[in-house]
């Protein structure tokens, strides 16, 4: 059985750390990779928005944003009550599950196309829309019991580097003329390569902070496999009952709701919640949820979408 190349880069990073190889990921490169990834996701969504902008899409976008808000609010109490995980880490993990995985989305697209199942072409826009609310909700959950002033909280929610870079990319992608094609090779063609290097660093980080995962190992594994099923059920229900999407569209929305971010949210959380244990969230989203969705989840979500749309 072969694995996705970007996932292998993550595993490679873990092996480098476990083998105690004398290697440190350059800090400047790490920040550059985050910058490119966040802008790339925003730009893709902006371009998709330009060619499909209408009122129905706005309403669908609002429903998708609500999914991004609801999922962290489901995940957070589970992590706090059953997992007994501290507030900052629970908020960080919850934000990861409210957001989406571009890798899982790409696999789902490939599955739908291989089975000739039609889907709405503007779905990249929903990928961007689902990235943002979860970050804001995660920061709010981490700080709602603190002493911070509302203005400071709002600043961190809407003006943290992750959200600003993605929104900036979205606005540029929407507003720019054809000249955007000249810069897209950097953000589109190199996306997978940049993602692979980013995941290499994520693997190094996850392995270096594996002790915390050992403490909550079995719980985190169970949580990381339950959340995709809860998210997919919510996504498929909204896609069928509220948005009236096609079978492929319902399956894609289920996949988006089921997946957990390992690109935008880790980048944003490292800025917004630097005290959180990022290896815990990365290990659960990338080490458990991503393979679970790819190997087990996507066929089940497609079955769910087919069942719901034929009702």
């Amino acid at each position: 059985m072969s694995l996705d190349a970007v996932v292998l880069f993550f595993i490679f990073g873990v092996i480098i750390k476990l083998a105690k190889v004398d290697f440190t990921f350059p800090r400047g490169l790490s920040q550059s990779l985050m910058l490119i990834l966040l802008l790339a996701i925003g730009l893709k969504g902006g371009i998709a928005l330009k060619s499909h902008a209408n009122l129905e899409l706005v309403l669908q976008g609002l429903a998708v944003v609500m999914i991004g808000v609801i999922i962290p609010l489901i995940a957070f109490p589970i992590l706090r009550y059953f997992g007994e995980i501290d507030k900052t880490n629970a908020a960080s993990i919850a934000a990861h599950y409210g957001s989406v995985s571009v890798g899982t989305f790409a696999v789902a697209i490939a599955v739908l196309e291989s089975q000739n199942i039609a889907y709405e072409s503007y779905f990249p826009l929903f990928v961007v829309l689902l990235e943002i609310p979860a970050i804001a909700v995660g920061i709010w959950l981490a700080q709602k019991q603190g002493q911070q002033r509302i203005s400071e909280l709002m600043h961190e929610m809407f003006l943290n580097a992750g959200v600003v870079l993605m929104l900036g990319g979205l606005v540029i992608g929407f507003s720019a003329n054809e000249s955007i094609d000249q810069i897209m090779p950097l953000f589109k063609n190199l996306f997978s390569g940049v993602l692979a290097l980013f995941l290499l660093e994520m693997g190094l980080i996850a392995a270096s902070r594996a002790k915390e995962l050992q403490q909550n190992g079995l719980f985190v594994i169970a949580f990381a496999m339950l959340m995709p099923l809860l998210g997919a059920t919510l996504g498929a229900t909204v896609g069928t009952a509220l948005l009236g999407l096609s079978t492929g569209g319902v399956a894609l929305l289920a996949v988006l709701a089921a997946s957990a971010s390992y690109i935008a949210v880790p980048a944003a959380m490292r800025v917004a919640l630097p005290q959180a244990n990022h290896s815990l969230s990365i290990a659960s989203s990338l080490g458990v949820t991503f393979p679970f969705n790819v190997l087990i989840g996507i066929p089940l979500y497609l079955l769910l979408a087919q069942s719901l749309t034929t009702l």
Partner: peptide, 16 residues
Amino acid sequence: MSVRQFIFVYFVGCLF
């Protein structure tokens, strides 16, 4: 592992 974590993992296992 705490009792709550045990119950949660057991529930998820049975559900799956």
